[in-house]
Amino acid sequence: MTQTDFVKLVLPFKDKIYRLAKRLLVSNEEAEDATQEILIKLWNNKKKIEDYRNVEAFSMTMTKNLCLDRLKSKQAQNLKIVHSNYEDHNISLQKQVELNDSLNWVSKIMEELPEQQKIIVQLRDVEDYEFDEIAKVLEMNETAVRVALSRARKTIREKLTNKHNYGIR
């Protein structure tokens, strides 16, 4: 497999890897590092990749495992991944500021979810995965995925409604 073939293969889902990594690791830099690592791993094993039917699902599983490992090792060191990407949403229009704020709420609420629910919400709501695909990535059954997703969605909405109603930040 040449470099161009590889790039063609990876191009459709490299952003998905990045977004999933960012969902879990929060920080832009950490997510970039993780994505880079995943892509290099894929490149180094490019001979084996050709045999896989679904490279995307495989890569997503890899990403999930890598990010969870990272989080675990960071916790063991008693360090937290600190993100400095506060100016992430660079919509410069004045009237977008309020919306921008609310978007930050949502992302903060998302951060509070357990890891597994984060992954499921990310894959379903952002990446539009089917339930069986999510189940494959997470190595669990579909019903469990549905239950976790439902729980996550309810939590998000509850918290969001509270914040919206009381205006508490």
Partner: peptide
């Protein structure tokens, strides 16, 4: 809000170069 957030996150892209 939730759906706006989702729409927003969908646009994020990985821009870093990967040395292959």
């Amino acid at each position: 809000l939730l759906f706006q957030y989702v729409k927003h996150t969908k646009q994020e892209q990985f821009t870093k170069d990967v040395p292959l």
